[in-house]
Measured scan of single mutants.
Amino acid sequence: ALNRGDKVRIKRTESYWYGDVGTVASVEKSGILYPVIVRFDRVNYNGFSGSASGVNTNNFAENELELVQAAA
């Protein structure tokens, strides 16, 4: 299972961040479909780089994520 702070690569092909590595911000335990919230260094097309207006978190299912580096 994934944990907060883990570095993960995104495998959801239609995602803006496909192939990117993000950090797990939190994992919901309530049984929702996309329980893993991942935070990225770059914002998506809703904002400009360096601006706070873009979105830099997204929810994924565990099977859409590949663990790159476990949290220390």
Rank of each mutant, 00 (worst) to 15 (best):
R39W: 07
K7I: 10
I10R: 01
K29A: 13
V8K: 00
N59A: 10
F60S: 00
R4Q: 14
G47E: 15
G19K: 05
N46W: 05
I32A: 13
A71W: 14
I37C: 15
N3L: 06
N44T: 04
N56T: 07
R4G: 06
K7T: 06
R12W: 06
S30R: 11
S53G: 12
P35K: 07
A72M: 11
E64W: 02
D41G: 05
A72V: 13
I32Q: 12
R39F: 11
K29C: 14
L67Y: 05
K7Q: 12
A71C: 14
L33A: 12
E66V: 06
Y45D: 15
Q69N: 11
I32E: 13
V38M: 00
N59D: 06
N56E: 07
D6Y: 01
R12L: 07
G5E: 02
L67C: 07
R9P: 02
S49F: 11
S26P: 00
P35N: 09
W17T: 00
G5R: 02
Q69T: 12
A61Q: 07
D20M: 07
P35Q: 11
L33R: 12
S30P: 12
K11F: 03
N3F: 07
N58A: 15
A61P: 00
V24Y: 00
E64R: 01
R4I: 13
V24P: 01
A70V: 12
A71D: 12
V55T: 12
R42G: 14
V27M: 06
V27E: 01
F60T: 02
G31M: 11
T57E: 13
A71T: 08
R9N: 03
V43Y: 15
G54R: 04
A71S: 08
A72G: 10
R12M: 13
G50K: 03
L67A: 02
A1T: 13
S15I: 03
S26V: 09
T13S: 10
Y45C: 15
N56W: 05
F40S: 03
Y34E: 07
G5V: 02
E62I: 11
V21W: 03
G54V: 04
G5A: 02
E64Y: 02
A25E: 14
L33W: 04
S53L: 12
S53I: 10
T13A: 11
G31S: 13
G5F: 05
S30C: 12
S26E: 14
S49Q: 13
L65P: 01
G22C: 09
S15G: 02
A72L: 10
V24H: 01
G50V: 06
A1Y: 09
F40K: 02
K7G: 03
Y45I: 15
Y16D: 04
S51E: 14
N58T: 09
V38S: 00
I10K: 01
R39L: 13
I10S: 01
I32P: 08
L33H: 10
V38I: 05
R4P: 14
S51W: 03
E14P: 06
S53T: 14
Y34C: 13
S53H: 11
G5C: 13
E14I: 06
A70M: 11
K11L: 15
A52H: 09
G31A: 13
K7N: 05
G19P: 01
G31F: 11
G47T: 05
E62T: 11
Y34N: 10
L33K: 14
S49V: 08
F40D: 03
V8G: 01
K29F: 07
Y18F: 08
A72R: 10
A25N: 06
G22D: 02
P35L: 13
N46T: 07
S30N: 12
I10A: 01
G54I: 05
L65W: 02
N46E: 15
L33D: 13
G19A: 06
S53N: 12
G54P: 06
L67T: 03
V43P: 15
T57M: 09
T13W: 09
S51A: 10
A1P: 11
D41H: 11
T23R: 04
F48Y: 09
S30L: 10
A72P: 12
A1S: 12
F48W: 06
V8C: 10
S30H: 07
F40P: 01
N59L: 05
S49N: 13
S53M: 10
R9H: 03
V36Q: 00
G5S: 00
R12D: 09
D20W: 06
A25F: 08
G47Q: 08
L33C: 14
A71P: 11
K29M: 12
Y16W: 08
A1H: 14
N58L: 05
F48E: 15
E66Q: 07
V55Q: 07
E28V: 11
A70G: 07
G50Q: 07
V55L: 07
G22P: 04
N58D: 15
E62L: 09
S15F: 01
G54S: 04
F60P: 00
F60A: 00
N58K: 12
A25M: 14
G22M: 02
R39H: 09
S51D: 14
S26D: 13
K11E: 03
F40G: 02
D6W: 05
R42W: 07
W17E: 00
S49D: 15
V24L: 01
R39K: 10
N56D: 12
R9A: 03
G50E: 13
V55M: 09
A72N: 12
I10C: 15
A1V: 12
A25Q: 14
L65E: 00
V43K: 06
V27K: 03
N44K: 11
F60V: 02
K7D: 03
F48G: 15
Y45K: 15
E28P: 04
D20F: 06
A61I: 05
K29S: 14
L33Q: 11
K7M: 12
V8N: 00
R9K: 11
V24Q: 02
L67H: 03
R9I: 08
K29Y: 07
R4V: 13
R42S: 10
V27Y: 11
S26Y: 12
A72T: 13
S30K: 11
A25W: 09
G47W: 04
R4F: 10
A52W: 07
N3S: 11
T23Y: 09
R4A: 13
R4S: 11
A25L: 14
S49H: 07
E64D: 07
V21L: 06
E62F: 12
L33N: 11
W17F: 03
K11G: 04
T13M: 14
E66F: 04
S53V: 11
R39P: 00
T13D: 05
N58H: 13
R42Q: 12
N3D: 09
V43R: 03
E64Q: 04
V55R: 04
L65N: 06
Y16M: 03
K7L: 10
N44I: 10
S49Y: 11
L65A: 02
N44W: 15
N63C: 14
Y18N: 04
Y16G: 02
E14V: 14
S49R: 01
N56F: 04
Y18Q: 03
V68Y: 05
A72E: 14
D41F: 07
S51N: 13
W17N: 01
E28G: 09
N63I: 10
A72Q: 10
V55A: 06
R12T: 08
S53P: 10
L2D: 01
V68M: 05
I37D: 03
A52S: 11
A1N: 11
G47N: 14
E64A: 02
A70Y: 10
Q69W: 10
V27S: 03
V38D: 01
S51M: 09
N44C: 15
G47Y: 04
E64F: 03
V55C: 15
A25P: 05
N56K: 05
N44G: 03
N63K: 08
F48M: 15
Y16L: 04
A52P: 10
G22Q: 02
R42I: 08
S15W: 01
T57K: 05
V24I: 10
V68A: 03
T57G: 04
P35W: 09
